[in-house]
Nucleic acid binder design. Sequence first.
DNA 1: CTAGGATTTAGAGCGTGCTCGAAGTCAACC
DNA 2: GGTTGACTTCGAGCACGCTCTAAATCCTAG
Lengths: 153, 153
Amino acid sequence: MLEVNPPPVSGLVPSIPQSGLSIAEAARRTGVSAHTLRYYERAGLVITDVDRTHGGRRRYRQQDLNWITVCTKLRATGMPIKTIRRYAELVSAGPGNEQERLALMEAHRADVTAKLAEIQENLKVIDRKIGVYRGRLAAGDADRLWAPTADTN
Amino acid sequence: MLEVNPPPVSGLVPSIPQSGLSIAEAARRTGVSAHTLRYYERAGLVITDVDRTHGGRRRYRQQDLNWITVCTKLRATGMPIKTIRRYAELVSAGPGNEQERLALMEAHRADVTAKLAEIQENLKVIDRKIGVYRGRLAAGDADRLWAPTADTN
DNA sequence: CTAGGATTTAGAGCGTGCTCGAAGTCAACC
DNA sequence: GGTTGACTTCGAGCACGCTCTAAATCCTAG
């Protein structure tokens, strides 16, 4: 599971110094772990070419955080790493492939709305069960008044 | 990924013969693979104690399918196997633990609604991107009329 | 009775997405 | 100039949920 670093940092965020942010700070602000930031970079998601110090340490700028945030939001909708990578490639290839970007996003949108519908549908089952148990508890069960044989678990 | 056996069989389903259904038929009707049915059983999800022929083949009854369907719907909302297992244990322990079942379901419901909210929130990002690309394509780009420098990918 | 497809088991394998670890480097403060 | 803690790479490890395999057995149609 994704380390649940407390949410991305709410409230008005202190702006970023000239020198950029350490990976720890960037992790704090994007809501993922430093490990995951490195992983995303290795995986080819981070097209903003994060700066480095002389010594090789990453320094994150606002644009890096912005892009990474896009990535995490796409992830949060269930877009696979590979697809985000593909999208990142399209974006970094510059203008001219909007048709492809659009197709990718529309396809993903369809996936997401289908998934949403499915979850909402099955949420009903959960709500019915909750209703059943609340009822039983309220009634002290009363020896299962209604639904004597039905599979009302 | 779950084998996407075409959806659970729509329309009015032929009723189940005395002898029960083969695992292949049960798979067809529940929308998961036979492999997955066996896996669910091994994992302790299937509390209905599926019948066997003399020779040891499984024979599924309506109540088996009903329970398995509950399991698949819980899975579809993202409930982990372990949690379904726990729930199955509660159900199969019989009346008297409704409090626990309720707590389990309510906790899961909270997870699900939180997840739904998150996805819906992030769907907005997708929709904005779609809007941007549609706009660019409609305008023939027009050299990125608006948002000349913003990170409107 | 026989052939051949379906089913059985237990265990191994796999794809995904992180998550961790080791060994070495860097940098900030005293 | 040290010490100390953050950071580097990159490969290994892990949790999850299937998915597949092999070898044996079953069962049904012919």
